[in-house]
Amino acid sequence: MFKGNVSDVTEFILAGLTDKPELQLPLFLLFLGIYVLTVVGNLGMITLILFSSQLHTPMYYFLSSLSFIDLCQSTVIIPKMLVNFLAVKNTISYPECMTQLYFFIIFAIAECHMLAVMAYDRYVAICNPLLYNVVMSYQVCSWMIFGVYCMAFIGATTHTVCMLKVHFCKANVINHYFCDLFPLLELPCSDTFINEVVVLCFSVFNIFIPTLTILSSYVFIIASILRIKSTEGRSKAFSTCSSHISAVAIFFGSLAFMYLQPSSVSSMDQGKVSSVFYTIVVPMLNPLIYSLRNKDVKVALNKFLERKFFL
């Protein structure tokens, strides 16, 4: 993957979230706690769905895939971030930086499209319940997940290949806490016009298309919910929608703030704050928002714990 690199820079320095020494240990403890919760929550959700037959439905199939993406996304970023909080010099080698960039993009794009797939699944379940088992068959779900990862690998490969072609000669301080596209594009001494066009095109596709899919799905969902005569059923459906929309708004809002602003008005310091939401906070919150507030998951969890600890 690194063949053809013409860079003079052999390692980068990560500026991190802050340059204040007194904040390094508190931030280390904070993000260590977040990472532990993220791993336990997402790994626990994958395990629960795998071993609970009542959760072997398309909705939870997608939830387990989302948990896997969140787990991988956090693991790509947080462990290196934690090391940097305690290190004297926050360095990362050129190959490690490009590898981190590659896998970060894979899971970021995959999450965008997986959220859209989940919204479509809810649309079919609420608006066409009689056709749900036919439309969302196992084969269809498998192809949808395969398509999500195909788009993720294509996007990540394109971005990384373009990044490998730029020339880093002097500047090597990345004003970020991991190797991200825009912070890296501030450093090359060669022309980055092609890279910026690729970033803009892929960002629009991977943010705008899923967002449009989600919004369209929820327009039809809300219209269908309003036709429900039962107040209790309508309230339950709206509650489910609000949780999903809240998580989507945090993820896509912070992502758009980072990637869809013109470089002339964007601030990398502000970008770092928004990045924390979609790379660290959202993966921790997703098991709570999508799963632990779900009655079926609570029942499955109780049965799972009874089977494991009380038999």
Score class of each variant (00 low, 15 high):
residue 2 F to N: 13
residue 3 K to P: 10
residue 5 N to R: 11
residue 10 T to Q: 15
residue 11 E to L: 11
residue 11 E to V: 09
residue 12 F to Q: 05
residue 13 I to V: 14
residue 15 A to S: 12
residue 16 G to C: 07
residue 24 Q to C: 03
residue 25 L to V: 15
residue 27 L to M: 14
residue 30 L to N: 09
residue 31 F to P: 01
residue 32 L to K: 02
residue 36 V to T: 11
residue 37 L to H: 05
residue 39 V to G: 00
residue 39 V to C: 04
residue 39 V to Q: 02
residue 46 I to S: 06
residue 46 I to Y: 08
residue 59 M to F: 14
residue 60 Y to K: 04
residue 60 Y to T: 03
residue 65 S to N: 14
residue 65 S to V: 14
residue 68 F to Y: 11
residue 83 V to E: 14
residue 86 L to I: 02
residue 89 K to I: 06
residue 89 K to S: 05
residue 92 I to P: 03
residue 93 S to C: 00
residue 97 C to K: 02
residue 106 I to G: 00
residue 109 I to W: 05
residue 115 L to R: 01
residue 117 V to A: 11
residue 118 M to V: 03
residue 123 Y to R: 04
residue 133 N to Y: 07
residue 138 Y to T: 14
residue 141 C to G: 05
residue 146 F to Q: 10
residue 150 C to I: 14
residue 151 M to E: 12
residue 154 I to H: 06
residue 157 T to I: 01
residue 158 T to E: 08
residue 159 H to G: 12
residue 159 H to L: 14
residue 165 K to D: 07
residue 166 V to K: 02
residue 167 H to M: 09
residue 173 V to P: 09
residue 174 I to K: 00
residue 175 N to I: 09
residue 177 Y to T: 03
residue 177 Y to F: 14
residue 181 L to R: 08
residue 182 F to L: 15
residue 184 L to W: 01
residue 185 L to S: 08
residue 186 E to N: 11
residue 186 E to L: 11
residue 188 P to N: 02
residue 188 P to L: 04
residue 188 P to Q: 03
residue 194 I to S: 13
residue 200 L to D: 15
residue 201 C to T: 14
residue 206 N to P: 01
residue 209 I to N: 10
residue 210 P to A: 10
residue 212 L to A: 15
residue 212 L to H: 07
residue 214 I to A: 00
residue 218 Y to E: 02
residue 218 Y to R: 03
residue 220 F to R: 10
residue 221 I to D: 01
residue 221 I to F: 02
residue 222 I to S: 08
residue 223 A to R: 14
residue 224 S to L: 03
residue 225 I to W: 05
residue 234 R to H: 07
residue 238 F to W: 15
residue 239 S to N: 08
residue 240 T to S: 15
residue 245 I to S: 01
residue 246 S to R: 10
residue 247 A to F: 09
residue 251 F to K: 00
residue 251 F to C: 00
residue 251 F to S: 01
residue 259 Y to K: 02
residue 264 S to A: 09
residue 266 S to A: 13
residue 267 S to V: 04
residue 268 M to Y: 11
residue 269 D to F: 11
residue 278 Y to M: 12
residue 283 P to T: 00
residue 289 I to L: 12
residue 295 K to M: 10
residue 301 L to F: 12
residue 303 K to A: 13
residue 304 F to Q: 07
residue 305 L to V: 09
residue 305 L to E: 06
residue 308 K to E: 11
